[in-house]
Amino acid sequence: MHHLDPDRLVLLALSDEPGLDESDHLDGCAACRHDLAALRDVAGIGAELQDLRDLPAPPEHVWSAIESEIAGPARRRRPRRLVPAMAAAVAAVVAVAGAVAFFRAPAEQVVARATLTPLATVPAGAGGSVRVLADGQMRIEVRNLPLTTGFHEVWLIDPDDLTRMVALGNLGDRPDEVLPVPAGVDMNRYSLVDVSDEPHDGDATHSGRSLLRGTLTS
């Protein structure tokens, strides 16, 4: 039996109606039916391509963020070499710092602490820790947070009712920050610490883009 001519199949896929003989053949021939179906799919996709000819490139800051992410860890991994004189100076500073640490005031009393872990969308290297001191200060340390075009904000959330939350403040550029916990906030109830990525959009509510989370325990 003769299969349908390839040019004819293409025409059928694009617009033509099959004639009676052609219909009969298609009914009995899986190979031609398969080819026609695939060509029809391609023609259908083809008809939708008009808008795709000059796709706009992503904004330039996207590339800057990629560049700094791929360059960052590699540079940090590179061991730092010190010339001997400098190494000696650094050793002296380290000795002094050690002495200071040794004579430091008695440890602050920690009333609660939490380990912050990244949400699924956040690189696994991100994380942090939180200590709440007896005087109501929260000390928070974070590492490897994804870059933001806005800012990072710290929240206390009620895990039993996730719409209830208290904003504690923003993280600066430093890896550690001290934020006051407002008086009257019950940390047994608002026990979920959340670090979010917030756009500068003037909207004071949570953006919904959480980066890190951890539960306070005493």
Binding site: L119, A120, T121, I157, L162, T163, M165, D194, D203, T205, H206, S207, G208, R209, S210
Partner: peptide
């Protein structure tokens, strides 16, 4: 898809999502 899933999860956090 990951982003959609996490948006769905975070939806419980706040209405704005």
């Amino acid at each position: 898809v990951d982003r959609m899933r996490s948006a769905a999860r975070d939806d419980r956090v706040t209405e704005t999502v």
